[in-house]
């Protein structure tokens, strides 16, 4: 009896173990399928979103670095920060301004809007390739400047201009849903970025404190501003999704 019971328990335990391992195998397979699906979507989306424009921007970034290195104006982290901020912000604006208006002009937007993919999915499909491209360019430039000048914190230098640029990028997407013209959206976004940057955010002094002035800025302000930046980004992202959830705005 006891032996039987032990046997049963053993069989049951074995079956449970097998079913557990089957379940985990299925989970892994599902995850692999999902990753493959998203990866191929990202690949297609990158091809459609970036294209030749990306090659030109890479050349521009190399040019910016070459000019900065040759003129010898990059002496410290403040200058590096300014260059990275300028490059990343303008790249975000250039790549984001046409994400939706270009689809509208090419008359492909209607097909996308009728697809079953959620509006978050559609927006991410368009915006993520831009983010990845700018991240790659930003990393390349930061690494090159680090090699040139040395002595600045890479993580901060990578993150802060990038998050600022991404916020301006998503602002450009929201603006493009209103004005429905990529050049107008780009111009407005850059103007807003410059005005807000100078008069309110003061990106160099408030979001990033070069070592020389670090003692003069209270840390809570920095943290608050960074939180504010994330809030602004989230708000703008939500606005862009909401605009996409109203396809009639594009059908006028």
């Amino acid at each position: 009896m006891q032996a039987n019971s032990r046997n049963d328990t053993g069989i049951a335990g074995g079956a449970a173990g097998r079913s557990q391992s089957d379940a985990s195998r299925q989970r892994r397979a599902r995850l692999a399928r999902k990753v493959a699906h998203l990866g191929s979507l990202l690949w297609f989306s990158s091809r459609l979103t970036l294209g030749r424009q990306a090659l030109v921007l890479v050349v521009v970034a190399i040019g910016v670095f070459a000019v900065s290195a040759l003129t010898g104006k990059i002496t410290g982290e403040r200058e590096v920060f300014l260059v990275l901020l300028g490059v990343e912000m303008s790249f975000f604006v250039i790549l984001s301004m046409g994400l939706l208006p270009r689809e509208k002009d090419a008359k492909t937007l209607e097909l996308l809007l009728v697809c079953t993919r959620s509006r978050h999915g559609l927006l991410l499909m368009k915006f993520v390739p831009v983010c990845l491209f700018v991240a790659a360019v930003g990393f390349g430039l930061a690494w090159a400047f680090h090699w040139l000048t040395g002595g600045f914190p890479m993580v901060k230098m990578l993150l802060i201009p990038y998050v600022l640029g991404a916020t301006i990028g998503i602002l450009t997407v929201v603006l493009s849903t209103h004005v429905r013209n990529q050049y107008a959206a780009g111009a407005i976004a850059l103007t807003l970025a410059i005005i807000l940057g100078i008069t309110w955010f003061k990106p160099v002094e408030t979001f990033y404190t070069p070592r020389a002035t670090r003692m003069m800025v209270r840390q809570p302000t920095l943290t608050l501003n960074r939180v504010l930046l994330v809030v602004v980004f989230s708000f703008l992202y939500e606005q862009a999704v909401r605009r996409l959830q109203r396809p009639e705005l594009w059908m006028k």
Binding site: F44, R47, L48, G51, A106, K107, T108, E110, L111, V114
Partner: peptide, 12 residues
């Protein structure tokens, strides 16, 4: 849905 005017991605 087949719209009246629609475009394709020419590089595909």
């Amino acid at each position: 849905y087949l719209p009246q005017f629609f475009g394709f991605y020419p590089n595909l």
